[in-house]
Design a protein around this nucleic acid. Structure first.
Lengths: 185, 185
DNA sequence: CAAAGTAGTTATCGACTGATAACATGTCAA
DNA sequence: TTGACATGTTATCAGTCGATAACTACTTTG
């Protein structure tokens, strides 16, 4: 095997993408470094060699997801700099599912101090970026983010999103309520 | 040891409380059945004997948390049946931290089908109960729950709540924005 | 081509985990 | 009192996991 040889940097990026996907579905503690390794087609020890530890791999995945989310917001704001535009971008991110899901798993893994610290940093950057890009005041930004959190949680539990479960009545009702929102999203 | 002998039902309840506390901080995959056993002062195999598996213990913890949250909402509604009253109750729950945290970890563990199913059930019940108790329409209930989700996530990452980290500027700002909300919470 | 550096592997380890089985101890009715 | 049942325990296991070490193979450069 080992059909293709890459530079360490390329392989690292590929591994970060694989880590985002793996951690997004099974979380920090629930995902083994071997899961990530197999997704990327390399051996498990090599993952550890490149990143030092599982924790650092996870943090790299969080950073990657956060950076891509911020970029999506910047792109949306370049188009039209209001919260509605960013909301549309958020919905597109939600459809991909991975980026927001891995961030949510980061929030949940905050009991690990190094992870908590990084995750607060990322959330703070996103909050600041939302305000900076749209000129929203703290209350508006809070409403935007809280709607985002509900959406992310609903997607995480398969009420919304690509791998959603057959809907119960309350799910359809709540989903409709989410879509009906046009004040900030 | 084994200073006190209990009925299986009593011990089960004690174990569920211990499970809520343990799972609330380290999540489903990140918590061992031995962690829960030690918290309750019994041996690890006995936990498995009483609940059958780690998964069933976790689900029992989720059910317990959900039931107590619903009860807190009913109590608040008995006092005054509007969203603001339920919001105050939610803030008290948030101060305890455990109940909402374990539920969030349940959401995050939805990739396990049995857990996902139960967690959706609990969330649906809470949503329905909020509407039933306050007469809120779907949009109002969604706003209420989304604010709740943001608060829960912020508490989970130690931005708010009892074990909050020394605050960064953006945290204070966002916390102030949360407190300034009096439309629904 | 040789040698040095880079990309990757296999082998292995100690620690941990969930679960099973067998055994012990306390309690209560007849 | 005794025996049956309920409440626990200790011993143990097979599997998994993150990490280390040692080795291999490719690539580039002089």
């Amino acid at each position: 095997m080992a059909r293709t040889r890459m530079t360490a940097a390329e392989r690292g990026e590929q591994l970060v993408r694989a880590a985002v996907r793996a951690f997004a579905t099974t979380g920090y503690a629930g995902t083994s470094t071997d899961d990530v390794a197999r997704l990327a087609g390399v051996s498990q020890p090599y993952v550890i060699r490149l990143f030092g530890s599982k924790q650092r791999l996870f943090i790299a995945a969080i950073d990657h997801a956060s950076a891509r989310i911020e970029q999506a917001f910047r792109d949306a704001a370049a188009e039209r700099a209001d919260l509605k535009s960013l909301g549309t971008a958020y919905e597109r991110l939600l459809a991909e599912r991975e980026l927001l899901a891995v961030l949510l798993h980061g929030f949940a893994a905050s009991s690990e101090p190094e992870i908590g610290e990084r995750v607060r940093e990322c959330f703070g950057r996103i909050y600041a970026e939302v305000r900076r890009l749209t000129g929203a005041d703290p209350e508006q930004a809070r409403d935007f983010l809280s709607t985002g959190m509900l959406l992310t949680v609903l997607a995480s539990m398969r009420v919304l999103g690509p791998d959603a479960v057959p809907p119960q009545p309350w799910m359809s009702e709540l989903a409709a309520a989410v879509k009906a929102d046009d004040t900030c999203l």
